[in-house]
Design a protein around this nucleic acid. Structure first.
Lengths: 208, 208
DNA sequence: TGTACATCAGTGAACGCGCGTTCACTGATGTAC
DNA sequence: TGTACATCAGTGAACGCGCGTTCACTGATGTAC
């Protein structure tokens, strides 16, 4: 079945990649060791040469997702000095991920019940990822406040959560309609409303 | 095991109730026919006197959830004439549901992957519920626009989705932290931002 | 350069478990006479 | 009012399936001499 013997490090990467793809396609629930093995070109038991258990694979997969999320934010920060533009960049990157199905993300699987119900360790893992990510968003918001672009009478946490609120319901609709819902269009429209909510309101008379 | 023989109609109600409670506690994934039977005081096979299959139970459960969602909106509409107050009422009712764990809702189970992945019929069912519900929200928004309270340059759909965006991430945090996250406080803070986003912006100078 | 050996990726059969579902049965309930 | 019977809720054993995991094995790869 296997084309060739490969080093454990190579196989581990392949297995995580396969698990990510499968989870993105069919949800973590449907992620079976057998399916991962098939995709990698191994027999199910072969997986256990490289991972201790299915839980182990999922933990590695979560770590990979965290890396991608963080890379996303870092890229957005590199390319934008303006905090508001930076947030928008993060948003659009996520929407792209969502559409491409590249990353199992929100709410598909990472924040889906399967991931953490009845598995306290994994729940802590997901919470840690979520917290890290939120901390990045809060930080950007704080900078916007310092620069006087964003409302000072607002907790960064609240703004960060609302930012999330643009992505998650869009993701739900995207999946429920099997890609029929135009997430990009929605994200742009919602972004405008989000800006109205978080930016310092301009006195219209000062514009004239 | 059963205390007494009961009519199928009574048992059906009991079974749906039990399924709802269990799904709210442990997620749809962990919902087993055996657990439902135990809770009702029957033997697993006894369930099949009243439902054709587990899928049938879940369909009935989804219908029940839809009823509750709609009842929620109707109550809010009855008690509020002002569209904005009405939306706030819907929001706070949902947050209460979330805290009480009474209704399996968002994202816990209804919009969780398990519910619809690999089950097109059920996905359509969930989509129908979601669409009905969104239609109610859109309707309230439209009224607000007609009355000149809410921005006219905004699609009701976008506002309704953002409204959802207050609840869903809050629900995620609530579950990830096992109830440690203060959803009520968050909802109130987010509501203020939401208002800033959707209401017609007031010229500050006109207030003086 | 060639041979012997250790290492370790990959295999396939098998096991155990949980779970949805079936089926022949039991026995209580309520109705017809 | 009492008896016979049909109906149907509830039972328990059993089945089949998918799936994660184990384990003894095979055989290729690379290293030591």
């Amino acid at each position: 079945m296997a084309e060739a013997k490969l080093d454990t490090e190579v196989r581990r990467e392949q297995i995580i990649d396969a698990a990510l793809t499968l989870a993105a396609e069919h949800g973590l629930r449907r992620l079976s060791v057998a399916a991962v093995a098939r995709r990698v070109g191994l027999v199910p038991s072969g997986i256990y040469r490289h991972f201790k258990s299915k839980d182990d694979i999922i933990a590695a997969l979560l770590d990979r997702v965290e890396q991608r999320l963080m890379a996303n934010v870092e890229a957005a920060r590199r390319e934008n000095v303006d905090p508001l533009e930076c947030l928008k960049s993060v948003l659009m990157r996520h929407i792209r991920f969502l559409r491409e199905g590249k990353v199992i993300f929100i709410p598909r699987t990472i924040f889906s019940d399967d991931v953490h119900v009845g598995n306290p360790e994994r729940r802590r893992h997901v919470l840690r990822i979520f917290t890290h990510y939120m901390e990045q968003l809060r930080q950007i918001v704080r900078e916007g406040q310092t620069q006087g672009l964003l409302r000072a009478d607002m907790e960064p946490q609240t703004a960060a959560m609302m930012f999330f609120g643009i992505i998650v319901p869009a993701g739900i609709m995207w999946h429920l309609t099997d890609g029929g819902f135009d997430v990009t269009r929605h994200a742009l429209k919602a972004w405008r409303l989000f800006c109205a909510a978080v930016t310092v309101s301009v006195d219209p008379s000062s514009l004239q």
